[in-house]
Design a binder for these strands. Structure first.
Length: 226
DNA sequence: TGCCAGGCCGGGT
DNA sequence: ACCCGGCATGGC
């Protein structure tokens, strides 16, 4: 962890923390809600997801057995605001079914499983890909797994840290091979990357070097703040 | 007004 | 092994 890359990653983290402060992720009350939120937030704005979660709570179906019981069309109606509501209703049912069958709806039993076994299991569930699986492991299970999303890729790219290969696992290794494997650190780091990603010109100006996504832009921004 | 948000799946090359 | 269309609402 004493190499140049780990130093840069720690410096980026420190600057993000200085500028944005704690992000309080995941914004959910308990792990099952985190897992549901992880599915609902796929390619969706969190504000839209919040409404869906609230609707699920008000309808008293934010529990695995209820998600299995409720008719799919009715479930889709409750999560309408999340977008892709029909697809996501199918995904929630697939996840709730798996949770019951494999772990008897027990979070303790589920997260007692080693990550090297649990992650592939999650990936086998319809609707759960790498980012969603890792969000569940980190934010619901507090496992030291770094979550990679579109923002994270863009930011690393712009800092000149694009890994060879350029696949999900390649980006993930950048963090996991060069930082202490601490869930709290990974939690805050990923949330901060999303915060700065939202805050910047991102897609509309992919070559912008002055904005806060670049090494220099971020540095200057933190300096202004002080 | 159009573009984008804390992706994933399935089918086609 | 990649590429692409489909899935969809709400906010700026």
């Amino acid at each position: 962890m004493g190499n140049a890359l780990s130093g840069r990653l720690r410096r980026i983290y420190e600057r993000l923390w200085t500028f944005y402060g704690p992000q309080h992720w995941w914004p959910a009350e308990e792990p099952f809600e985190v897992m549901v939120g992880a599915i609902l937030t796929q390619s969706a704005a969190w504000t839209n997801v919040e409404k869906g979660i609230r609707a699920l709570k008000e309808a008293r179906v934010l529990a695995p057995e209820d998600l299995r019981r409720i008719p799919q069309a009715e479930l889709a109606g409750l999560i309408h605001s999340c977008g892709y509501y029909n697809a996501k209703a199918v995904k929630l049912k697939a996840f709730a079914g798996w949770f019951g069958e494999q772990y008897g709806d027990s979070l303790v039993r589920m997260f007692a499983r080693d990550v090297t076994q649990l992650r592939p299991q999650l990936l086998d569930i319809h609707g759960i890909g790498e980012e969603t699986a890792d969000s569940i492991l980190l934010y619901a299970g507090e496992k030291p797994v770094f979550v990679i999303d579109a923002y994270t890729r863009r930011i690393l790219d712009r800092h000149g840290l694009r890994p060879a290969g350029g696949k999900y696992a390649d980006y993930q290794r950048i963090f996991m091979d060069n930082l202490a494997l601490k869930p709290r650190l990974f939690n805050e780091y990923h949330a901060l990357l999303v915060a700065v990603g939202k805050d910047c010109c991102h897609k509309t100006n992919p070559r912008c070097n002055a904005c806060c996504l670049s090494t220099e832009g971020l540095y200057n921004r933190v300096k202004e703040r002080r």
